[in-house]
Amino acid sequence: MALAFCGDEGNSTAYNVDHGVLNNGCFVDALNVVPHVFLLFITFPILFIGWGSQSSKVHIHHSTWLHFPGHNLRWILTFILLFVLVCEIAEGIVSDGVSESRHLHLYMPAGMAFLAAITSVVYYHNIETSNFPKLLIALLFYWTLAFITKTIKFVKFCDNDVGFSQLRFCLTGLLVILYGMLLAVEINVIRVRRYVFFKSPKEVKPPEDLQDLGVRFLQPFVNLLSKGTYWWMNTFIKTAHKKPIDLKTIGKLPIAMRALTNYIHLNEAFEAQKNKRSSLPQGSGSIWRALCCAFGRPLLLSSTFRILADLLGFAGPLCISGIVHNCIFETLGFSFPKMRDI
């Protein structure tokens, strides 16, 4: 079967632009490849040179020492973007399977976008590590171009009466939203850090904890992916496998996580509660209110994740029950009660 970006059928009209270039779906898909190729060509030389590994102006023993505004939101949006792009690749491959020739434009732009999304977050991490935000201007142009080209494709779908009944329409709409949100995050970094278009950029100094060689607990300072997977602990775990560890190897906690700091926060919250409710009787309720005021967000997050972890613990047994019931007993012709019926 012949390979062609727009297909290779004998009577194909894929290359016909009599009604305008933007009214040809294949050329619109080719236009969507441009931003991703731009990002790959711009960022790969910088990544290969290794600019972000260590800045010449920053001498620090840790790999990550600050977060730009919208750090966590950027990582979350990137994870969602990668998932949607995988769905778009799968949809394109399935759609291409019913044609006489290979239509690369159905899934090649999504594949390039997937590579570009991974490159963008690696590139961002290196820039964040080196604290050289001026290089983020490349991502600003990329998100802008990706948002414009994907919007053009979405508008052309609407003009040709492609609605919500088509999966590619829904995926394109989601990608427009995601690229728009990532563009907004990038603009917010410019607004806060003022690294371009402003006369006085905002200088950010590294946290005191990371300048202390004795601090080894890096959870508050690493990126969201490393936080979720505890990737930053790999060095510590490898050391523990080789030899017994001691308190010196474990190191000190960051200032914000020490008992004295937490006591000060709790005491301030408790005194504020006493001043606000001086006329009310004091009791255990005041302690709980002070705890919620001082540590409400961490408590809420930890409780939510604990509940989700407990609920997901039921997924494994239910999946095993379904696999055993459908793949084994039904194949042999036996009936076996499902777990929910027991």
Rank of each mutant, 00 (worst) to 15 (best):
V28I: 15
V28Q: 11
V28T: 13
D29K: 11
A30E: 12
A30V: 12
N32H: 03
V34A: 15
H36A: 15
H36Q: 11
F38H: 14
L39K: 06
L40V: 02
F41K: 08
T43H: 01
T43L: 01
T43M: 04
F44T: 15
P45V: 01
I46L: 13
I46D: 11
L47M: 15
L47C: 11
F48S: 03
F48R: 05
F48H: 02
I49V: 15
W51V: 09
G52N: 11
Q54P: 02
S55L: 12
S55A: 15
S56L: 13
K57C: 00
V58D: 03
I60R: 13
H61W: 05
H61P: 02
H61Y: 04
S63P: 07
T64M: 12
F68P: 01
P69H: 05
P69N: 06
P69I: 04
G70M: 05
H71Y: 01
W75L: 07
I76P: 00
I80N: 08
L81M: 15
L81T: 15
L81Y: 09
L81K: 13
L82E: 09
L82V: 07
F83R: 07
F83E: 10
V84M: 05
L85D: 03
V86E: 11
V86H: 12
V86I: 13
C87F: 12
C87S: 10
A90G: 06
A90M: 14
E91C: 10
E91W: 08
G92F: 11
G92P: 10
G92V: 14
I93Y: 07
I93Q: 04
G97L: 04
G97W: 03
S99W: 12
S99K: 14
S101T: 15
R102L: 02
H103V: 13
H103G: 10
L104D: 07
L106N: 08
Y107D: 06
A110S: 12
A110E: 03
G111T: 05
M112R: 05
M112A: 14
M112Y: 14
M112L: 15
A113M: 08
A113E: 06
A113F: 06
A113N: 08
A117H: 04
I118N: 06
V122Y: 14
Y123N: 08
Y124V: 03
H125L: 08
N126R: 14
N126D: 12
E128R: 14
E128C: 12
T129R: 13
S130L: 06
P133D: 00
P133S: 01
K134H: 11
L135R: 02
A138E: 08
L139Y: 02
L139P: 04
L140V: 04
L140G: 08
L140A: 08
Y142N: 06
Y142T: 04
Y142P: 07
W143C: 01
W143M: 00
T144E: 00
I148N: 13
